[in-house]
Nucleic acid binder design. Structure first.
Lengths: 246, 246
DNA sequence: GCGAGGCTTCGGCCGCGACCGAAGCGGGCG
DNA sequence: CGCCCGCTTCGGTCGCGGCCGAAGCCTCGC
């Protein structure tokens, strides 16, 4: 029965503390370099490299060169679903082991739900809100997949951005200096579709913050979607985002 | 960060081929003895016993004495969800490794969905249908949790069973000989609530088969829920069971 | 009450795999 | 062009944990 071995092989990958630490660190959807992950996992560079190679091999991670760095991220939503499922089993274990704090566990879970709904990824939007915005832009012909992992803003999209108040000029200026890509596809772990990163993504995020449609939760990447923001998403982008579970 | 260790510890449990084999074997919801599981996993008795003890300890399995045997089964739905989630990640790996049979994998998955919907557990109903029936009987005051892991059939339940055609006399006769418990709570892996086992559970299953509401799929524990059966469940038990995914 | 079957505990063996330091590659940046 | 930084490969060490056989415990059945 090959399925038995496949199960144990994948589980064994997540079954090492160093690898588990890396996977958890990548659950936020950011891509990280091998050295970062090594220090997060508390192992040396070579050891981390070996772990990462195994996880790439098994399809748990994907890697992308960026400059002289190699950035690793979760291979897809099924991987993060797996990690969540394992944590769901592991949570009661951790509880019973030390003084039982189901309340805090539930709070953590709620916080996770908030993260999945709306968060920043560096300085741009991610989560369901980020993906919904990107989806809407594509759907309405404002944004198209460009060469490589870039987005191309169409003429129609240019007009749309100016109309709703996105500071396109600043974003373009930043891109022209070469310091930053204008618009990049950034794959989101909790959603299927990529969202909008780069200078344009940051400009969108700035707009939502300036309009007070979303607000930074103190000390984290979570963004609170205000009622006015939910309304605005419907009115401006014609998208609906689900409410947070109670 | 304790959550990291908890994750890796649980994953490591599933990361051993012998333990993974046991977990997969238990995915059908049946409880098995240590010797059975040892031969399934291809290890000796003592080795299996050690594995089982660890999984009990971690809350992945639960054990129940029955005579001089000790029966092991999955601790709950979150455990089977975890295993499914891991397999979802492992499946592509197995595919690319050898000749890729996504069709058969999908067929297996569909078969699993059928198992979750309706199956036999020994000779009684299990799966969503089994649990739905048990839920309805409790909800309507026909069945109550009795002492230990027994169910108690109320007077109202007695009348109800006779009215819909369950062969109560045969079930009671069987129970009176002591050869069999009358009605036992049997925990179902794919559902929360226990379903009805014992002579009464078997009688219910016989009824559904006799009425042609369900039919045995050849060569398996899966039961096909006929359209008439779905209708009957609504009419007789006032429960709704979801359709199979296409 | 005694034997048998099922499960667990104990002790000891062995192999896999995590780990690190040192050395090798390769792409930026000054 | 050459240094530097980030990542990988190589070789060797070591400890954890899986594995089994033998022996012990408990429950059942004759």
């Amino acid at each position: 029965m090959v399925t038995t071995n496949a199960l144990s092989e994948v589980a064994a990958l997540a079954g090492d503390p160093a690898r588990a630490g890396m996977l958890l660190a990548l659950m936020d959807g950011r891509a990280r370099g091998a050295t970062d992950l090594a220090s997060i996992a508390g192992v040396s560079g070579p050891t981390a490299s070996g772990h990462l190679a195994k996880m790439i091999d098994a399809g748990l991670l994907v890697a992308e060169r960026q400059g002289r760095r190699r950035l690793f991220s979760l291979a897809g939503p099924e991987v993060s679903r797996m990690i969540e499922a394992i944590m769901a089993v592991a949570a009661p274990l951790a509880d019973t082991r030390e003084g039982a704090k189901p309340a805090s566990a539930r709070a953590a879970w709620r916080r996770d739900a908030r993260l999945r709904l709306c968060r920043t990824c560096y300085d741009h939007l991610a989560g369901q809100v980020g993906s919904a915005v990107a989806d809407a832009l594509r759907r309405d012909g404002h944004l198209e997949p460009g060469e490589g992992k870039d987005w191309t803003l169409t003429g129609k999209g240019d007009l749309f951005c100016r109309r709703i108040g996105v500071d396109l000029d600043a974003a373009r200026a930043l891109a022209d200096t070469g310091r930053r890509k204008f618009a990049r596809q950034c794959l989101d772990w909790s959603e299927r579709r990529p969202h909008v990163a780069g200078a344009l993504g940051a400009a969108f995020c700035d707009l939502l913050l300036a309009r007070d449609w979303v607000a930074r939760a103190r000390g984290g990447r979570a963004l609170e979607l205000k009622p006015a923001g939910r309304l605005a998403l419907r009115r401006v982008f014609d998208v609906e985002v689900p409410a947070l579970p109670a």
